[in-house]
Design a protein around this nucleic acid. Sequence first.
RNA 1: GGAGAGGUGGCAGAGUGGUCGAAUGCACUCGCUUGGAAAGCGAGCAGAGGUGAUGAGCCUCUCGAGGGUUCGAAUCCCUCCCUCUCCGCCA
Length: 427
Amino acid sequence: MLDIALIRRDPDRVRHALVRRGLDASVIDELLRFDEEYRSALTTVERIKAEKNRLSAAIGKAPDKGAAARELQPKIAELTKSISESEERARGLSPAEQGSPLRALLDNLPNLLDDSVPDGASEAANVEVRRWGEPRRFDFAPKPHWELGERLGILDFARAAKLSGSRFAALTGAGAQLARGLTAFFLDRAAARGYAEVAPPLLVSRETMWSTGQLSKFADAMFADAQADLFLIPTAEVPLTAFRSGEILDAAELPCKYAAATPCFRKEAGAAGKDTRGLMRQHQFDKVELVWLSRPEASHEALETLTEDARSLLEELELPHRVVTLCAGDTSFNAAKTHDVEVWIPSSDTYREISSCSNCTDFQARRAAIRFRREAASKPELVHTLNGSGLAIGRTLIALLENNQRADGSIVLPKALEPYVPTTRLG
RNA sequence: GGAGAGGUGGCAGAGUGGUCGAAUGCACUCGCUUGGAAAGCGAGCAGAGGUGAUGAGCCUCUCGAGGGUUCGAAUCCCUCCCUCUCCGCCA
């Protein structure tokens, strides 16, 4: 959520960000009108309340309270009536009220963009900032991971479909061990880089989901239990970012870094027909997520560090990859700036996203009310939140199988995984 | 799931209808004191919103959340949530 005071003070800045994202900026005029109306209604309510409070206090101070109460009764009754009327009007306009027009507009405004985000409308305008390794040249016809995996007996799509339908996979034997090893490998690296491991709840409340900005745009893509009003997390970004919600942190705690390995659940409703085969796009997938709570002035640099934390994992796994900065039109709702880490996927003949690292600035912190105090005596300020995968397990598995396959269909795993898997060669 | 107890400021902990946004202690900030420190003394110290200049001041709201009673609620009533203890069930 954006700061409404900032929208008032500098509406052009917000309009500019909307235009850069390819969105209609006229909502800002509408929003400012509703805001004006709301504040004027609020002032009215508060003025009448102040008057009533004065009279009540006068009764409290009177020597004969009963007599004073009787005397002021008619006047107070009138004010009470007037308050409930004007209050109803103000509540209907309040940004805090579910379903108010101001709330609806505010809920759907994406974050401001960082100045360094490149212009552009789509993926095509993303800017490569770093490349590591060379895509391997095969002297045989490389197979896609679903063929490799099924032949090796480590991926089972048919039985997963039998259990749950399409877009589910089962890992078996060495595949399950490899996934477990990767998870441990990623978590160990995160720990070494100062992330505190958390095993968070996988079901979260509507309020939590809203606080991290998932509900505004992605409600349709989430699995939920309507009766309990709980949502299966689409990413551990949600519980990790909201972990300290409502708290005021010590400045000494920042940056505060969390890592979690969790399953993620997504309906992927909008992705029908895309990546229908294999592990690429599943309703359920495992991921190690990295989250930062940072001082505002440090978040820009933090994004670079976070991205490097994710990227370096691919280097250790000896997988060719690159880092791109998303352009304005491709940067997601919550983010002010995003670096995607993309790994080479032979079956796609291109680099595919394996981690998306975002600086959400104060956008999530405002809703989640995550603040810190610079000095013991200073006012609380919003932190900046950042998140990124480090890394997605399934996609790492794809990359390892496809990039490291040999002509006979066997797979050689990188040395870095030696401590984490029973064997560094599959098949 | 059942029974009981409880949820108050950064923490601890008073407060059972009227200047209570809230005693006191701790922590913290500033000052005095000191060669320096500790102790001691004095002052300050919740958050959000509106109005004002992103100042001072003024006003509104907030004592788990939401309703209600009342001129007036931290205090009384109702609903819900959470925590703790015991019992039941259970991986």
